[in-house]
Amino acid sequence: MGHSDPTLTQHQNREGTAALEVSGLTHDFGSTRALGDVAVAIHPGDFTVLLGQNGAGKTTLYSLVTRLYNNRTGAIEIFGYDVRRDSSQALTRIGVVFQQPTLDLDLTVEQNLHYHAALHGISRGQAQERLEEELTRSGLINRRHHKIRQLSGGQRRRVEISRALMHRPKMLLLDEPTVGLDIGSRQDILDHVRSLCREDGLAVLWATHLIDEIDEGEQVVILDEGKVLAAGGVEEVCKQAGTATIREAFTTLVGKEPEV
């Protein structure tokens, strides 16, 4: 990449392979450019917020990283594995929580997790162990025999997060995981994922259009109309934009007020 890469400075300061390294990524839907020359780097143990308004290209980026489709130019590497060439290696290393709910409503929590484990070729016994562990961690162990239909929105999200962790990925991708949740559940989910990030050293990419989901000291990538406008630590991005707060930085860069 010859162009100025805003993530380069932080990249150089860190050791080891990036959890996710996207470079020069461009993708079109017909004649509409969804992503233009996007570069993003995420590191193990980092909680990175992908901030952008609706339609900024967040979901497209997730679809390409998770290889729902991959007709694009540019490179996507997960822990050094090219998503297109070594898709199997790449996909075992990521856990995904999609924007739309993806649980079977009529199946129980346990059944949903078993299904996911099977998709990853995990044995039934091991899946049972892990699901008990993950559900304990997310506080839903007592609900494991409940149907998803009986759970609240926040609980369903927690199940999806537990599910995404069943195959022990090293990176967690979440696409607007707090959409439709009340403030309390939103904060719960955020706290839960932040602690996962701290405790397990998971790399987390958290996509949102809500600026108040960013904390001091975290990484942020601002995406607008398919382009990365800024990336780096919160302070760094503020400095680049010449503002005091991330909210002002967003307003300056995007030219619009962010949502809270």
Partner: peptide, 19 residues
Amino acid sequence: REMGSMRTLLVSPLPRWFL
């Protein structure tokens, strides 16, 4: 797919044709 559970299937590391 609209509900997204097709996506759950397709992020499996196994080859897509097999899925």
